[in-house]
């Protein structure tokens, strides 16, 4: 990870005001570092130009691995390793394998996606993530700019943008 980030951020009282501010920022080609909201805001992703998450593709792959694992292992056990006849059924009894295959597919997909998500987001037990302001998890909507190495006139441009678009507070912080 890079060293400290110098961040200039503005807090908005309402998501609509914040969405309008982002539209203005896009028009002025300001480079927003990130946006923090207490709940998912509809229409935010396309405004920020965020790509669709690839997490579900990973989920499909994990699920498929689960399917193959369950089916492969059961096939190997019941036809090669330790064939046992249950209730007069053939060794390779596909319908009996389906529930376990389903369960392992779900298990692999869910655990795989949780681990991937936590890894990508840098979350783990014991990790401390810097928070710009505690209230962005409650009732404030935050637009943040990274200001490392910027001249004071450029920082002023960002700060006046935040004020003019209705931010109720503007501050800076090193995280």
């Amino acid at each position: 990870m890079s060293a400290h980030k110098e961040v200039l951020y503005g807090l908005y009282d309402d998501e609509e005001i914040m969405l309008d501010a982002i539209r203005v920022a896009n028009k002025q080609h300001l480079d927003i570092m990130d946006v923090f909201t207490p709940f998912p805001v509809h229409g935010l992703d396309p405004l920020l130009g965020l790509e669709e998450s690839r997490l579900h593709i990973a989920g499909f792959v994990y699920g498929a691995i689960g399917t193959l694992t369950a089916f492969g292992v059961m096939t190997w056990i019941f036809t090669r390793d330790w064939p046992v006849i249950f209730g007069g059924k053939p060794y390779w009894s596909v319908p009996a394998f389906i529930p376990i295959t389903f369960e392992l597919t779900v298990l692999f997909a869910s655990i795989g996606m949780v681990v991937s998500f936590y890894t990508v987001c840098g979350l783990a037990p014991g990790v401390v993530n810097p928070v710009l302001d505690d209230r962005i998890t409650d009732d404030k909507f935050c637009i943040a700019f990274q200001t490392n190495g910027l001249s004071s006139s450029e920082i002023d441009k960002y700060s006046s943008f935040l004020k003019s678009t209705g931010a109720s507070e503007v501050s800076s912080k090193v995280i």
Binding site: G87, G88, K89, P95, A96, I98, P99
Partner: peptide
Amino acid sequence: WFSQFMLIWYAN
């Protein structure tokens, strides 16, 4: 569909 089939298939 599968639940209906499998229970009957299994009970035989």
